[in-house]
Amino acid sequence: MLGVELLDGRLKLVSVQPDGSVRVVDTPGQIHNLLYIASMEAAGWKTLVQELEELINSPQTVEQDLQRFFERNPDFLCGDAYEEARSHIVLQRDDDGPLIPDFALKPSNSNALCDLLELKLPKAKLLRVSKNRVRLTSAIMEACAQLREYQSYFEDAKKRLAIEESYGLRFFRPRMMVLIGKRSDYSATDLRNAETDVPNLSIVTYDDILERARARIRKR
């Protein structure tokens, strides 16, 4: 008989002899038409990384394309800190139209509070130089203004409770995160200096997301 056994953290094809002894019959490079969970996951992630790279490098890509990709593949946004990336929750307001953040990030720690993330394009610039000073661009400041409006919404306890009841998400002064541009286009020192202009803002770049995904593949 043939069977599958977990050996050293990997599924192996084994031959079960009449006397009950077991012999491994495959080599690391053989699959014998069996689905290895770790290999499947790594292959799946490689395909998704390629898809994201194509979106990042295509001049035709719009924010809706990226929104749909991350809605289908929220693990790219979650990393180790978050267990869920919920898209387009609706923050209802009495006197104005609703606010709709791109993503709400629910932390893995059930006692922690949720954060918010806005998407901008990979081709968007992060820094500009004015009078020998490096500053954040208008694209980032626009995202920051959006995020501050969301933050203000959650200062109201009744609104926080309504969102928790509707979505199971707990908010209070959420961290502001924006996914934008490419870190590799800039000096690490210049980017860190510019980030201090908005202390409560966390800038995540598309090459950060890709590198995190590649690291996950290397661990498989």
Score class of each variant (00 low, 15 high):
K120G: 10
G97M: 09
N193R: 14
S184M: 05
S108I: 13
W45D: 11
M1N: 11
R214I: 12
E41L: 04
L91V: 03
V14K: 05
K106T: 04
A162S: 12
T47F: 11
V14N: 06
S108G: 09
R175Y: 02
D208M: 04
M141E: 09
V25T: 08
R214P: 03
A139D: 08
R183S: 11
L179D: 03
I100G: 11
L201D: 00
S58F: 01
L121D: 05
R192D: 15
I37S: 07
G97E: 08
L119G: 10
T27Q: 14
E54M: 12
R10L: 15
S39D: 09
R216C: 05
A42M: 03
E41N: 03
A157L: 12
D94H: 07
P107E: 04
R72M: 13
S58R: 03
M40W: 00
N33A: 15
L77Y: 03
D185T: 03
A213R: 08
Q146S: 08
S152Y: 13
Q30V: 12
N132K: 15
V49M: 08
V62Y: 01
S152K: 12
S184P: 00
E155Y: 14
L11P: 04
E155T: 15
E155V: 13
L105K: 01
L99K: 13
R173D: 14
S166M: 09
A157V: 15
D185Q: 07
F103A: 10
P74G: 09
E195H: 05
R72F: 10
S138G: 01
Q151Y: 04
R183W: 01
A143G: 08
E84L: 11
R183D: 02
A213C: 11
K123W: 13
C78T: 08
E211I: 03
A157R: 13
R183I: 00
T137D: 04
G79P: 02
L117G: 04
P18D: 12
L161I: 05
G181D: 01
V24C: 04
A139K: 07
T137L: 04
